[in-house]
């Protein structure tokens, strides 16, 4: 990974995020939940799935579901040279998310993150966890699991895991 060379200088109270773009808007997700970033792979569409489900891909022999956040947010899904898939790993849940481009890693202190404004959209309230500023641009901090409405799956998975661990 790119950041492997630079020693992580995480001070207490600061958290690192992976920033990416959807169209012209900037978002970021906690770096800890990111497994890797891959170039846009060949995807196989799966019937009877939601409109923002791009399909399944082959990640070194593992089959992974890929969602398109742009379609989820009602943006145009144009594939360019910078289009990439961020592979997320939340405990047992593993999935990919198509984004327009992956930008950089942000190290944000708690003071850098401001309370989210009160959105009119109730759903947006749920999946935007905070707002930060980077290079005079607004970066929305995202809860991907909530944004993709995968909470139920995540909860089930966690429950199953707890059960098998007991």
């Amino acid at each position: 990974m790119e950041s492997a060379g630079t020693k992580p200088t995480t001070t207490p109270g600061s958290q690192r995020f992976l920033a990416f773009s959807l169209g012209v808007e900037d978002f970021a997700v906690p770096l800890l939940s990111v497994r890797e970033v891959v170039a846009l792979p060949e995807m196989t569409r799966v019937p009877n799935t939601s409109s923002y489900f791009s399909g399944i891909m082959n990640l070194r022999g593992q089959i992974i579901s890929v969602f398109d956040l742009r379609l989820r947010f009602g943006m145009k899904a144009e594939h360019g040279s910078e289009t990439a898939v961020i592979i997320h790993n939340f405990s047992q849940l593993c999935f990919g998310v198509v984004v327009s481009s992956v930008n950089n890693v942000l190290s944000l202190k708690d003071t850098d993150i401001s309370e989210k404004p009160d959105f009119h959209d109730m759903q947006a309230n749920a999946y935007i966890t905070g707002v930060s500023r980077y290079n005079d641009k607004l970066v929305l901090l995202l809860d991907v699991v909530k944004a993709l409405r995968l909470e139920d799956v995540a909860v089930q998975k966690q429950a199953a895991k707890n059960k098998s661990a007991a």
């Binding site: 799935t49 399944i56 089959i63 992974i64 579901s65 849940l93 999935f95």
Partner: peptide, 17 residues
């Protein structure tokens, strides 16, 4: 191969390959 749990509710598929 197993498909992700997010596809568990889609009927008619027994797995992936």
């Amino acid at each position: 191969k197993k498909l992700g749990d997010e596809l568990a509710n889609v009927k008619g598929m027994s797995g992936g390959a």
